[in-house]
Amino acid sequence: MTVSITRARHRSARRPTTPLHDLANVATGSMATVGRRTVVVAASSGLLVTMFGAPASAATGGTAGSLPSVDTASLTASARAVLATAPVVTSPADAAWSSDIPAVTAVAPAPVVTRTAAAKAARSAARAAATVVRAAVVNNPVPQSVAGNAVLEVAARYVGTPYVYGGSTPAGFDCSGFVSYVYAQLGVSLPRTDTAIKAAGTIISRADAQPGDLIWSPGHISIYAGGNDQVDSPRPGKSVQFRSIWQSAPVFVRIG
């Protein structure tokens, strides 16, 4: 009995393939000979690839790489038909455009007024002075002789003004400064001191004196208010007021 020990031959291991590999091989091998259409079917995976290999020139009869022609004549005819049926819109030569835009007026904001400390102090001082004036008028009523007398009417406006040494304004008067200021409001210019004012006028008797004349005494001058009254700026700490004649030997002086 003969025993054969011939060994079986086996195929060497190959790289596994899939339906996609077959598809790629078929497509690569057939690319050079593809006609108008080539269909590759991968039956095992159900994949269908349709390749259109016909060049554009085969359909249009042109050269390779050229674009299909467009019938511009038919497009032009269609555009003309649309234009022919479109409505005609016209406007007159003198047409004017307008728009209803409301007028806008800019208004500057009102300035903000801020009171400074100085302004507040001045206002407080003015109120205090007004209070003093009212009190002086109440305590020293204006005589009836003032009515109709220009000099006394002007002098009565400053009742309550404080005495200020060397003062000659409504901010404060001394005796001669007050008399000079009152006469200046009537257009009469007088010297600044009491002695010079006396020298500028004419000395008259008490019996001849009229309201508006002056009363002089050494170091002081006032305005005669009729009867036994005078108006003057007495001394520091006092204010302009109507009061009785206190001088023991008053000298009456008339200006002009």
Rank of each mutant, 00 (worst) to 15 (best):
T2A: 15
I5F: 15
A8I: 05
R11H: 11
S12N: 03
R14C: 02
R15G: 10
T17S: 01
H21L: 10
D22A: 14
D22V: 11
L23P: 01
N25L: 15
V26K: 01
A27W: 08
T28W: 10
T28S: 15
G29E: 14
M31H: 13
R36T: 15
R36K: 13
R36Y: 13
V40L: 12
V40T: 14
V40S: 12
A42I: 04
A43D: 13
A43K: 12
S44Q: 08
G46C: 01
T50E: 15
T50P: 08
F52A: 15
P55K: 11
A56V: 14
A56C: 11
A58L: 00
A59Y: 06
G61W: 07
G61H: 09
L67P: 05
P68F: 04
S69K: 13
T72V: 02
A73F: 06
A73Y: 01
S74E: 05
V82R: 06
V82W: 13
P87K: 03
P87Y: 05
V88C: 01
T90P: 03
P92Q: 03
D94F: 06
A96G: 10
S99W: 13
S99H: 14
D100F: 07
A103P: 07
A103G: 12
A108S: 13
A108W: 00
A108F: 10
P109F: 10
R115G: 04
A118Q: 09
S124D: 04
A125T: 10
R127W: 03
A129D: 08
R134W: 08
A135Y: 05
V137A: 03
V138N: 14
N139L: 13
P141S: 01
P141Y: 05
Q144H: 04
A147P: 05
A147Q: 09
N149Y: 02
E153C: 08
V154T: 08
A155M: 11
V159K: 07
G160W: 00
T161E: 01
P162N: 09
Y165V: 05
Y165H: 11
Y165P: 01
T169H: 07
G172M: 03
G172Y: 01
D174F: 03
S176G: 15
S176H: 09
G177W: 00
G177V: 04
S180F: 02
S180W: 00
Q185G: 05
L186W: 07
G187E: 08
G187W: 07
P191A: 08
T195Q: 09
T195V: 14
A196R: 09
K198N: 14
I203D: 10
I204N: 02
R206G: 15
R206L: 10
A207K: 11
D208A: 12
A209Q: 02
P211I: 00
G212E: 06
I215T: 08
W216R: 04
H220F: 01
I221Q: 04
S222P: 02
I223G: 02
Y224I: 01
G227R: 03
V231H: 03
V231I: 14
D232N: 09
S233H: 05
P234Q: 06
R235F: 13
R235M: 11
R235A: 15
R235K: 15
K238H: 12
K238A: 14
V240Y: 00
S244K: 14
W246F: 15
Q247A: 08
A249W: 04
A249R: 09
